[in-house]
């Protein structure tokens, strides 16, 4: 039974992939090997086959508005959506991908990583990582990632119980997932909360139930310019832009996280950093009193100078 179904699914995929136009159901039943029984049986078989293939990531396109088909829907699999654009990836890039995928070693994601590697790199040996496995500590469990990924693929909503911070009870949430982000070692799901009509962020570790996926597909769209970080407050703190002159080879702390660095003259480099607060910037300027000049903001520079004046006075 299941052997026959496997065979039928392979035949169906190949037929839909080979067809240049959308195939009507009647055409599929007639041409693709494996569909038999009453019209209702065939209908049920096909509906299940279609869902099964879609659930495993094969995109089947439907054209129901095509005037050629009157009221009957047509189906096809576009070659460009079925095939991996392997030619686009160079050998050098493959080697980077192989090193990257090896990071998943002993993380619970080895299976996905080796599947990916087999299709991308034509071999599932993800190799031994030269770095200690690092992805494991970020709280991401395969099950929730898979469920969210499936929902993202079909643009279906999901439902789960969510326990808010400082709350002992969980509540039911219905969300259209739009993106995923890490922050300080935790994962966040960003999506449209259907009951609150708003885009919200959910910490994955606070999802306390299984995630169930709505059977409906194409329920929403993710705008091309959607950016998950726009919805994470902690990533959108107002940072202060600070301009410094830094003695060459000094003030390593400022250099570790900078946006721009250029040589100013023989003695100094000009750099820009983003600081958490004015106080933090002031403290850095004072700690590195002998190796930096805080250039901008000017008000902050004046504050630094007042502190120097005070120190001179105090120690006179």
């Amino acid at each position: 039974m299941s052997q026959a179904k496997t065979e039928r699914l392979v035949n169906l995929t190949m037929a839909l992939l080979a067809s240049r136009r959308y195939m009507k159901k009647s055409e599929i039943f007639q041409k693709v090997a494996g569909y038999s029984g009453t019209p209702e049986t065939k209908e049920r078989m096909f509906e299940r086959d279609k869902d099964d293939l879609r659930n495993l990531g094969i995109e089947i396109e439907v054209a129901s508005q095509d005037p050629l088909f009157e009221d009957e829907a047509g189906y096809r699999i576009k070659p460009e959506s079925y095939r991996f654009p392997l030619k686009e990836i160079s050998e050098a890039e493959k080697s980077i991908l192989s090193t990257a995928l090896a990071l998943w070693e002993s993380s619970g994601f080895e299976k996905v990583a080796s599947e990916t590697s087999r299709r991308l790199l034509s071999g599932n040996q993800i190799g031994e990582s030269t770095f200690p496995s690092l992805i494991a500590p970020i709280e991401l469990v395969e099950e929730s990632l898979n469920e969210i990924a499936k929902a993202l693929a079909s643009r279906s909503s999901i439902e789960f119980h969510y326990q808010k911070q400082d709350s002992r009870n969980s509540e039911n949430r219905r969300v259209c997932p739009m993106g995923l982000s890490t922050w300080h070692g935790s994962w966040y799901l960003v999506g449209e909360d259907l009951d609150r009509n708003d885009i919200r962020a959910f910490k994955l570790s606070r999802i306390v139930s299984q995630i169930s996926i709505n059977k409906k597909r194409e329920m929403y769209e993710i705008p091309r310019d959607f950016s998950v970080t726009d919805y994470l407050v902690m990533l959108n703190r107002e940072l202060i832009e600070v301009e410094w002159l830094v003695r060459k080879g000094r003030a390593q702390l400022l250099r570790s996280n900078l946006k721009l660095e250029q040589s100013f003259d023989e003695e100094w480099d000009l750099i820009h950093t983003k600081e958490e607060s004015l106080e933090a910037a002031l403290e850095k300027a004072l700690w590195h009193y002998d190796s930096v000049i805080l250039v901008k903001p000017i008000k902050l520079r004046e504050q630094v100078m007042r502190r120097f004046e005070k120190l001179v006075d105090q120690h006179e």
Binding site: M14, L17, A18, L56, G57, I58, P79, S81, Y82, R83, F84, P85, L86, I96, L97, T99, A100, L101, L103, W104, F109, V112, A113, E115, T116, R119, L120, S122, F131, L134, I135, L145, N146, A149, K150, L152, A153, L180
Partner: peptide
């Protein structure tokens, strides 16, 4: 018509992108 490998699923895309980002930071 099966000469080329099947494309990646969203899970696989996500897993690969995470791996590349992690490598970038390492």
């Amino acid at each position: 018509n099966l000469s080329e490998p099947r494309t990646l699923t969203i899970s696989e895309i996500i897993v690969t992108r995470i791996a590349l980002s992690a490598l970038h930071e390492l």
